[in-house]
Amino acid sequence: MSMILEVSGLNAFYKVRAPGKRKKERHQILHDITFQMEEGEILGLVGESGCGKSTLARTILSMVRDHEGKIQCADAHPQMIFQDPYGSLNPSMKIGNILQEPLRNILKMPASRRQAEAAAMLEKVGLEEKYMDRYPSQLSGGQRQRVCIAASLMLHPGLLIADEPVSALDVTIQAQVLRLLLELKKEMGLSILFISHDLRVVYQLCDHVMIMKEGRIVEQGETDQVYFSPRHEYTRDLLSAAGISRTEEEEESGGRKCTIQQ
């Protein structure tokens, strides 16, 4: 298996101005992050809010300038889906134009072809062509997130980073959007770095999981292994807080299925 993403020894910093001080202080957000991601897999990244998950995503997409370490990505234009579908679509741009942006800017495609590609992608995410002329405010949250997915896939990226793509949506819509994401992943051969704090969703989706705490990866491995024989204290805490455990029956038979208690 070839690797789509290799990160080793990554440190990232933010400059923060402490109250009352004139000088900005350099805060280390990420500490020595090392992981690999295989082509075609879904890698889950779990951790509480503020632990640096989004910073890691932004650093991989070279939006954080102040970093040390190696990031090697096999994809020239990795894309990202943001958490809030209300903030990530430009309110003054039509859906069609939002979708055409990457084709126009990066591939320099002529307008007529862009139009056709955008319409085709819109259909793929389950929206009709008429939505091309709508503005984001005319769409529901689920529809917006579908548009975001479509926009991120316009360049047929190898690597897609999904930063809590469904946390802002209703539970019923969440399932729909996740299903769509899985379908598209199969169809287009995507590798997805799936950031979430919802352990259930991660369990259903991901091949590998990384657990992050205070800017460090405390545990990583295959999903089943991390979920059912966690090595780190923090992982155990997270799992028990989410109410995920093996039933006794499965424990005896050594089964790999888990029960997710509601």
């Binding site: 997409l61 894309q79 990202m80 943001f82 942006e101 990457p102 990066i106």
Partner: peptide, 8 residues
């Protein structure tokens, strides 16, 4: 940010 990712 997403405009940036789309190469603008």
């Amino acid at each position: 940010k997403s405009a940036r990712l789309s190469g603008a």
